[in-house]
Amino acid sequence: MSLDNEQLARLASLARLEIDPAESERLRTEMEKMVELAGKVTAAATDSSPPIAHVQQGDQPLRPDDPQPVTDNLSRLAAEADADMVVVPRVVE
């Protein structure tokens, strides 16, 4: 399957990535190979096998619904913080 520049740009947008124009041709070739590899499943016979998202299909035990200690000071992980708040670029005009 070939990918045109518009499709590549759409994929990058979905992945929240910018494409360096100098690398776009190489990336397009690599992505075409990867999509071709993935496409091998389309011809496989799967009969009526229902899809499975996870190997553990049984009920997983739930934790007791009790309050637990909260990891504090998480804002220190952010690139920019003010007191206990994460600073982000303006999102509301």
Binding site: A38, G39, V41, T42, A44, T46, S49, P50, P51, I52, A53
Partner: peptide, 10 residues
């Protein structure tokens, strides 16, 4: 693609 892969996984 994705659903088919999940079927193959099963």
């Amino acid at each position: 693609y994705y659903r088919k892969a999940q079927q193959l996984r099963r």
